[in-house]
Design a protein around this nucleic acid. Structure first.
Length: 472
RNA sequence: GGUCCCAUCGUCUAGCCCGGCCUAGGACGCCACCCUCUCAAGGUGGAGACACGGGUUCGAAUCCCGUUGGGACCA
């Protein structure tokens, strides 16, 4: 890249809903580009659509970005704080004769567009107010850009190459609605120019707006930024990712027990690559990120791969950090008393479970039997394994275990070996009943690990309770 | 409907710009086997793609054209 100007990029979400997965990827690419080039990452809230924008959404966006660690350097700016600036710019164009009042109502325009489409013509504004000299009484006009009608406008896109638009196909864009609100396109151009944005990295859905925006830069006399349009994220049905495809809200992924680094890693690899590498720390992404390797085709969101990445980060994550997250967020929500579990016990639980749980929410489920004082075995598991046939061996084992001076992992196998030898059992025939007695389930970490985790007292209590339940 | 974008295993992708090293590589998922006290994890192996049709060329996944399919935008 031969840019001599400092790199300044922005993420500019509309606060009309939660922070969407697709939005996060756009934010991430901007963030990575900024950090890679030692530039500035700006957050701007595009809230001019006051009927749909909410403060709740803004909070959600900020919280989501913070959770992911996508820290911004300037902002958040809000477009509703900048209305006067847009007004000034519109007035400037009006004064220069590069914009004009249009008295057509939205209804009329809709009707004409429908008619054009029915007649298979380009549904383009017909320019009937373009040279109007006098106002129409009783009507509040909108303001339109007087765009060039001949020639071409070329978007030099960093991802897609040159995209050529015939000016004759582009109509005169509305800058100010008749209700007094500036339009998206106007605000974006004014803000990007005023904020000295060097690279606009945004969704593919804005590619068609870009030539019109370029015309506005021209009209204002601003140098345009460089553009990079990233393709959309699609659902499994290849339609644009939306709520009906399941979770699309970033914060919901946090609730489901995903780690920020997993989500970031997944989203980075969706559309961007660096050879065959799959696992990237945020630091590595910053180091290696380049728009050159951003794919131009749309990508389908694949929850399985995200889940795999999450399990990878759980397996390899720092156990102390995971332990505190697990206890204070996911466990505390289920069982408030969990807050008082000592750190070192939490760390042991994490170590036992981190190769088995793909999310922290799942880990919370799996850890409940080590958190609660007493458990009730699943009926099916108890029926299958806590049988009269195994009772003698189980009773014998309990006796042996209770006699153990030490109750740590190295001390336990000898007791098991003695019992299976004495009762002519296979290890599985003894371990499974013990597992059910201790955890209530047929699935758990290694049996010695479980015993050590529960400690002597709770282990023996659960074994005795199981023994009693068998009867006879 | 117009305009614009896109097209390699089911999915994410490498390769494409600068044709031959591609009998197309990796990852997720799937299947099998190994390991094993259960479940995972881990290990080994397997099935699986250049949308189609023309061209250019000694040679095309790679360049060109068309078709088909998908997507986006049009206060």
């Amino acid at each position: 890249m031969t840019t001599t100007n400092p790199v300044r990029v922005r993420f500019a979400p509309s606060p009309t809903g939660h922070l969407h997965i697709g939005g996060v990827r756009t934010a991430l690419f901007n963030y990575l580009f900024a950090r890679h080039h030692k530039g500035v990452f700006i957050l701007r809230i595009e809230d001019t659509d006051t009927s749909r924008s909410t403060d709740e959404s803004i909070h959600g966006i900020l919280e989501g970005l913070k959770w992911l660690g996508l820290n911004w350097d300037e902002g958040p700016f809000r477009q509703t704080d900048r209305l006067a600036i847009y007004r000034t710019h519109i007035d400037q164009l009006l004064a220069q004769g590069q914009a004009y009042h249009c008295y057509c109502s939205p209804d009329e325009l809709d009707a004409r567009r429908a008619e054009a489409m029915a007649k298979k013509q380009t549904p383009k504004y017909d320019g009937r107010c373009r040279d109007r000299k006098t106002p129409i009484p009783g009507r509040t006009p909108a303001v339109r850009l007087k765009a060039p009608q001949t020639g071409q406008t070329v978007v030099k896109d960093l991802i897609r190459g040159d995209v050529v638009f015939e000016n004759s196909q582009l109509d005169d864009l509305i800058l100010l609605r008749s209700d007094g609100n500036p339009t998206y396109n106007l605000c974006v151009v004014v803000d990007d120019a005023e904020m000295k944005i060097s690279h606009v990295i945004r969704g593919d859905d804005h590619l068609n707006n870009t030539p019109r925006q370029l015309q506005m830069y021209e009209a204002f006399g601003y140098p345009p930024p460089q553009f990079a349009h990233v393709s959309m994220i699609l659902g499994p049905d290849k339609a644009r990712l939306s709520k009906r495809h399941g979770a699309t809200s970033t914060l919901v992924y946090r609730e489901m027990g995903y780690l920020p680094e997993a989500l970031l890693n997944y989203l980075a690899r969706l559309g961007w690559s660096s050879g065959d590498q799959e696992i990237f720390s945020l630091h590595e992404m910053v180091e290696k990120f380049s728009l050159d390797h951003v794919n131009s085709s749309a990508a389908i969101f694949n929850p399985d791969k995200l889940l795999w990445l999450n399990s990878h980060y759980i397996k390899t994550g720092d156990t102390t950090r995971l332990a505190l997250l697990l206890r204070d967020h996911y466990l505390a929500e289920r069982e408030p008393a969990a807050r008082s579990i000592p750190d070192d016990q939490m760390i042991r639980i994490v170590k036992a479970l981190q190769e088995r749980a793909k999310t922290l929410a799942e880990m919370a489920d799996l850890s409940m039997c080590y958190v609660e004082e007493e458990i009730n075995p699943e009926p099916a598991a108890a029926a299958k394994y806590l049988t009269p046939a195994i009772k003698p061996a189980l009773a014998n084992l309990t006796k042996q275990l209770s006699a153990l001076p030490r109750f740590d992992e190295p001390a336990l196998p000898a007791a098991f070996e003695a019992i299976i030898a004495a009762h002519q059992l296979k290890m599985a025939q003894l371990a499974q009943p013990v597992r059910v007695a201790l955890t209530g389930r047929t699935v758990s970490p290694g049996i010695y690990e479980v015993l050590a985790l529960l400690g002597k007292e709770r282990s023996l209590a659960r074994l005795k309770k199981a023994l009693d339940s068998i009867g006879g």
